[in-house]
Write a protein that binds this DNA or RNA. Sequence first.
DNA 1: CACTTATCTTTACAGTGTAAAGATTAAATC
DNA 2: GATTTAATCTTTACACTGTAAAGATAAGTG
Lengths: 201, 201
Amino acid sequence: MRQTGTYHHGDLRAALLKAAEQELNANGVERFSLRGVARAAGVSHAAPAHHFGDATGLLTALAVVGWRRFLATQQRHEARAGPDPLDQLVAATVGYAAFAKSNTALFQLIFASSKPDRCHPDFQAAGDTAFNHLVELVKAVTGEDAVEDCDARTDVLAIWSLIHGFSHLLNNDYLAPISQSKAAREDAIRTLVTRYWTGLR
Amino acid sequence: MRQTGTYHHGDLRAALLKAAEQELNANGVERFSLRGVARAAGVSHAAPAHHFGDATGLLTALAVVGWRRFLATQQRHEARAGPDPLDQLVAATVGYAAFAKSNTALFQLIFASSKPDRCHPDFQAAGDTAFNHLVELVKAVTGEDAVEDCDARTDVLAIWSLIHGFSHLLNNDYLAPISQSKAAREDAIRTLVTRYWTGLR
DNA sequence: CACTTATCTTTACAGTGTAAAGATTAAATC
DNA sequence: GATTTAATCTTTACACTGTAAAGATAAGTG
């Protein structure tokens, strides 16, 4: 709680984002409460308005954070993998699912919620960056450019659908058998992605 | 609105389910309002309680309807396709995405919402039925049983992830180029699914 | 007919998001 | 350093939400 004499918080904006993510993980996107976030941060319920306008503003800002962490998680996995393009792509997809698994609420927020402003420039820019990264990885594997080559576009669509569906099903408890072990999840993804390519060529 | 002398609605339960689906399509799962549904049905805001208990009860019942329509949509597409097992599977996946496209809110409700009671026997039974149907279709293609054979389990996982990811991305406006034309969507799905099998064997 | 049950309404309450106005502090300007 | 200005947070208020409890009405049952 705030001490006497600390009418001004200092860094309320960051504190609210942190509290909002915790609220989101605890209650889910659908039961998100702006007043609850303010309570958790130890300020009045109207305090967030000055920093974010309304609940949409806060969740939009949080979604941008989510997009960046989503991409960073993939890149962290890539850094640990070998230099082979296919290994890099597999590592990225493993990171994709790992993010979904350990950031359940953020994953839902960035991909399937109408609470953030999905038309906001920052939201779109962060999302586009993440998407382009996937396109680049596929491009490195095929040697083709998804923008020009039609088959390459299909490849991107296939890989994206595959890993996104896997992550989303995982995120909603539809893959209980695999969900338990991290190794089992990674194995499954590795098999799915590599089988797609090796089956093709 | 209700006429004088019609204190009892007649078939309020069905009317509420219908109104709830419209509310859901109009406002989305996250902005769903029980009072709004009651208003649309022309009854007091507490009327739904007697039929469904609370909002969770109503949305659980609606989700069960969603599961059944989800399966029925797939079967309708299968009936129009040829007898070849792969054609049947492709038709089912096309139906999968078609349902997602034209039942946006229901798709979100059954797969990714915490508002219905996902542990309710009816919900689980309806969901299991839909899942088992997909397993049977894959089984018909491979000749193996997903319960026993490990490769077949992976095949189910792959196809399910693929079509579910595609549908979910489509549902959230991430496949704008394909989203426009029905033929383009069906072509893309057909390519993805068939490429998975023909590439493999 | 009388009685019971099912159905719907009314009323009430705690909770929500947002807007407006007031209070307090930090920063900027003189 | 004193005064003004701007930023930050609180208080108050309002319309809305879901749910519970009690009352009103109609339908079914003996």
